[in-house]
Nucleic acid binder design. Structure first.
Length: 564
RNA sequence: UGUCCUGUAGUGUAAUUGGCAACACGUCUGACUCUGGCUCAGAAGACUCGAGGUUCGACCCCUUGCAGGACAACCA
């Protein structure tokens, strides 16, 4: 009562999401003796994407916040789709995002226990072996508004079921010949409760268990029990599993095992972004993109290669929040989080993407000088560097206009601008080629403005970046744009393929000029090219043949103004 | 002709659990500036899906509509 509301303590109380509320209630009621154990359960059949990042941040974040732990568990119950390539990439991505799991588990670790429990269900008369074909099972399941029909094998004796199930395991039957089903209710309004399949026969090697098994548990039969075995307290998954929860609870109840609980949240959707693992796989297989880590992909490895930081992704996951309603996040929020992070840590450099030659006519030929430039105005500890200046420079084509509109603060005939960290220059002459294109500018500089200082207090509205022609490092630069041109890539016009939405101009390769300080940059190094955006060194980069990826442009107010 | 989930500014997420709707992104002003970046100051924008009801008082509770989503792989 005499306790003041926590106000000016710097840690303004952030509102809780519904999962935090559930956990806090559980903690208060002593539900699991104060224990919080979550799990991140990917199927190793594809690469993780930004949607998974939300789930990872949620599961690990929640555990961290409440003094708990998180297991990484591979849901590897379908050998035909899964592969070690994927488990390796998943581990790398989770680590890169900045999380450490308490244990690395596999659903396949539990195959024996799961099998034993299946026998228990058979003994209890709660499971039976069905000989119907896949087609018959499908037909007899009914539809959403029509009850299904009982299988004629539904009432086999416990002994017969046990015998058949053991022979399934022993490999006496071919793929698809029989399945083990739970005996629930073929008329249940929830389709998943209509005698779901527990085990199917697959004579296929498993990436971990090899040829030890030829029967494999289905998701519903494996997931909840795996949670239970690990004593997961809060099993958090996406909304589409909501319908599975009654089944999840049913197995735990009938088996009388640790009561893990499932909670569902709405998965992440993002504008202009494809989240379907299946379709992303297709893009890779059909070589629409360079691979899973193509910088245009929404995969974690793609974002990494693009130049994203784990901090930016975590901040994003934090800002999108968690709830149960369907949502579509504007991709500009992701970009905002990225810029916010990069602004603080990326060192600034100058680079000209579309060069226009400038000759300083009153600057001595053959002379070179070094000018001091700040590495990061947001971080003094980043220090300074020297940038070479000479008579011939490159500036950005778009920084010159022969007939500028009123608010154009850059270079134009007779107009003066500041070359960042260098001098004021004034354009005197415009040289064109036969076709009338501007190919060179002749300018004069004011020696008194060295360093970019105004010698007499005179104001120059514009400051542009530049690079000394003789010192410049020519480099490949990959400019990326959104992979899909439609805001919702799944919203495909009638009669068209979803791939019709792919943006044909999502990758543009150009050659630009860098200031020499950039020549020694290593893969994944990040810089802000002043006034142009954030760029990151690509894996393809080699000494002498550098490759930069444009991570994201800077916010461009001028583009808005000039577009009226 | 089903079962379940969900409806709050353009987009997300809040609202001390019944006390006259907040924060972020985006948008628009303006200031500052050696990045048309950053930063700073401000503005517009929601009668909380509709209709009833309970209550002094409803985003919140009740009734009833409507809308969106999920579920009919031997996928997860």
């Amino acid at each position: 009562m005499e306790r003041e509301p926590l106000k000016n303590e710097g840690l303004e109380e952030k509102s809780k999401n519904f999962l935090e509320e559930i956990i806090e209630e559980d903690l208060k009621s002593g539900k699991h003796a104060g224990r919080v154990l979550t799990r991140f359960p990917p199927e190793p059949n594809g690469y993780l994407h930004i949607g998974h990042a939300k789930s990872i941040c949620l599961n690990f974040g929640l555990a961290q916040r409440y003094g708990g732990k998180t297991n990484l568990r591979f849901d590897d119950t379908n050998p035909v789709k899964e592969d070690v390539e994927y488990v390796d990439s998943i581990k790398e991505d989770v680590r890169w995002l900045g999380f450490n799991w308490a244990n690395e588990f596999y659903a396949s670790d539990y195959f024996e226990q799961l099998y034993l429990w299946a026998e228990v269900l058979i003994q209890k008369g709660l499971a039976y072996v069905d000989d119907q074909t896949q087609e018959e099972i499908r037909l007899n399941r009914g539809t959403v508004n029509q009850a299904g029909k009982d299988s004629s094998f539904r009432n086999r004796s416990v002994e017969e079921n046990l015998d058949l199930f053991r022979r399934m395991r022993a490999g006496e039957f071919k793929d698809g010949e029989r399945v083990l089903r739970a005996k629930l209710d073929m008329a249940h309004p929830n389709m998943l409760m209509r005698d779901p399949i527990l085990y199917r026969i697959i004579h296929s090697d498993h990436h971990r268990t090899g040829d030890k098994w030829c029967i494999y548990p289905m998701y519903d039969y494996a997931h909840g029990q795996s949670d239970s075995i690990e004593q997961i307290t809060h099993s958090i998954c996406t909304l589409e599993f909501d319908v599975h929860r009654p089944l999840y609870d049913w197995f735990i109840e009938k088996l009388e095992i640790f009561p893990s609980h499932q909670y569902e949240f709405a998965r992440l959707n993002m504008t202009y972004t494809m989240m379907s693992k299946r379709k992303l796989l297709q893009l890779v297989q059909e070589k629409v993109v360079m691979g899973w880590d193509d910088p245009r992909m929404p995969t974690i490895c793609g974002l990494r290669r693009r130049g994203y930081t784990p901090e930016a992704i975590r901040a994003f996951a934090d800002r999108v929040g968690v709830a149960k309603r369907d949502n579509v996040i504007d991709i500009s929020l992701l970009e905002f989080c990225l810029r916010e992070d990069l602004n603080k840590r990326a060192e600034r450099r100058m680079a000209v993407l579309n060069p226009l030659k400038v000759v300083i006519t009153n600057y001595p030929e053959g002379q070179t000088e070094e000018l001091e430039a700040v590495n990061n105005p947001e971080d003094e500890s980043a220090g300074k560097r020297m940038v070479p200046f000479s008579r011939e420079l490159y500036i950005e084509q778009e920084d010159f206009m022969e007939n500028p509109p009123k608010k154009f603060f850059r270079l134009a005939p007779g107009q003066e601008v500041r070359l960042r960290y260098a001098y004021f220059i004034k354009c005197n002459e415009v040289i064109k080629d036969a076709a009338g294109n501007v190919v060179e500018l002749r300018c004069t500089y004011d020696p008194a403005s060295k360093g970019g200082q105004s010698p007499d207090g005179r104001k120059v509205q514009g400051t542009i970046h530049w690079v000394s022609a003789q010192h410049a490092v020519k480099t490949e630069i990959r400019l990326f744009d959104r992979l899909f041109s439609r805001e919702n890539p799944d919203d495909v016009p009638e009669g068209q393929d979803w791939k019709s939405g792919i943006n044909p101009e999502s990758l543009k390769v150009i050659y630009g000029y860098l200031e020499p300080a950039l020549a020694s940059a290593k893969a994944l190094d990040k810089f802000q090219f002043e006034r142009m955006g954030y760029f990151s060194v690509d894996y393809d980069s080699k000494p002498g043949a550098m490759v930069f990826n444009r991570t994201v442009t800077l916010k461009d107010t001028w583009a808005k103004i000039s577009a009226q």
